[in-house]
Amino acid sequence: MRLTTITAAVTLVAGVAVAETVAPGDVQFTEYGEVTQSLTGQPGDAERGKTVFSSRSKGNCVACHAVAQLADVPFHGEVGPELTWTGEVRSAEELRGIVANAKMMFEGTVMPAFYKTTGFTRPGDGYTGKAAAGDLAPILTAQEIEDVVAFLLTLQEG
């Protein structure tokens, strides 16, 4: 009895350790471009994900994607497909892969990679037009990716 409890506790601790934040360079993509493992081990928060999706300084996803559920957000773009039903047709694993680096699924796509820090041509320091001072941070943090994925999963019709 006691022993089992201790084992369970140890497993829990180990579980947390394994679920440490995955660095941008360590993300594992399947051959279809999905990412099966959570980037943080923490569940995403759809409300925060909605903010990441809509705000210019975060994902600004709405610049390219229209979403019927975001009627209160002005100016939805049309460079990418409408995402009103994406939660019905895409899995969490697919969505995590697409947001982290859409080029792994859609070769040469216009959609930027939001969890990538190397391999850029003339990377800048944000929107200043100046050269990046040092290593770039990914556009979104690991948790913000999880939050956006949680938000995308809520996008279902009806």
């Binding site: 850029f120 041509t121 003339r122 990377p123 800048g124 944000g126 929107y127 037009g129 050269a131 990046a132």
Partner: peptide, 8 residues
């Protein structure tokens, strides 16, 4: 180019 988060 600035709007690509690039160095112009």
């Amino acid at each position: 180019i600035r709007d690509t988060r690039g160095e112009t």
